[in-house]
Amino acid sequence: MADNIKHIVMWNLRGENEAEKLQSVEVIKNCFESLRGRIPGLLHLEIGVDFSRIDYACDVVLYSEFSSREALDVYATHPEHLRIKQEIGDLRITRHQVDYIANATM
């Protein structure tokens, strides 16, 4: 049985004001949502925008699930994903990532 992999990425975005950050959020949402149905093994994808405004919170999160580690590897090098990474690279200040096996026991 293949592992179900969760891939979570969080960003803090550039922007002089809230309107500029919201523009960046829209670009990120549109980019990643365009991947649905285009990446083999990508089971689920959603973009969340922080509303807490807590000083240590990230601005936006990508939550995605893959059918296996191999599917995550395919995603990482897929031309559409690489295009998006290039497109959004200048929008972010920081990036954090966690990949883990769903329901893994320790």
Results as ranks from 00 to 15, higher is better:
67 S>F: 01
82 L>D: 12
19 A>R: 14
82 L>Q: 11
68 S>E: 02
92 R>N: 10
24 S>L: 04
88 I>Q: 07
83 R>G: 12
13 L>S: 07
72 L>M: 05
51 F>D: 00
63 Y>T: 15
20 E>M: 12
18 E>H: 14
53 R>N: 08
100 Y>F: 13
21 K>S: 05
97 Q>N: 05
34 S>R: 06
64 S>W: 07
46 E>T: 12
63 Y>Q: 14
66 F>E: 01
28 I>K: 09
46 E>C: 14
15 G>K: 09
22 L>E: 06
57 A>K: 10
102 A>M: 08
53 R>E: 00
30 N>R: 12
9 V>G: 10
75 Y>L: 14
86 Q>M: 04
22 L>M: 11
58 C>M: 15
104 A>L: 04
62 L>A: 10
95 R>S: 13
91 L>T: 06
38 R>F: 08
68 S>V: 06
101 I>A: 03
42 L>E: 00
58 C>P: 01
53 R>V: 03
32 F>V: 12
79 P>W: 14
95 R>P: 01
38 R>L: 11
21 K>E: 05
70 E>G: 10
47 I>T: 13
96 H>N: 04
23 Q>K: 12
31 C>R: 10
37 G>V: 14
54 I>D: 01
46 E>G: 02
96 H>I: 07
99 D>L: 11
73 D>W: 05
24 S>Q: 14
39 I>M: 11
28 I>N: 08
73 D>S: 06
63 Y>V: 09
13 L>V: 10
106 M>V: 09
18 E>F: 11
19 A>Q: 15
42 L>S: 07
80 E>R: 14
29 K>S: 15
105 T>D: 00
81 H>Y: 05
14 R>G: 00
46 E>N: 07
105 T>E: 01
68 S>W: 03
34 S>V: 07
50 D>P: 00
10 M>H: 00
56 Y>G: 05
39 I>F: 07
13 L>A: 11
66 F>C: 04
96 H>S: 03
62 L>V: 13
24 S>E: 06
13 L>E: 03
24 S>I: 13
18 E>Y: 02
52 S>E: 09
71 A>Y: 01
27 V>M: 13
54 I>H: 00
33 E>F: 15
61 V>N: 06
16 E>S: 14
86 Q>N: 12
90 D>W: 01
39 I>Q: 01
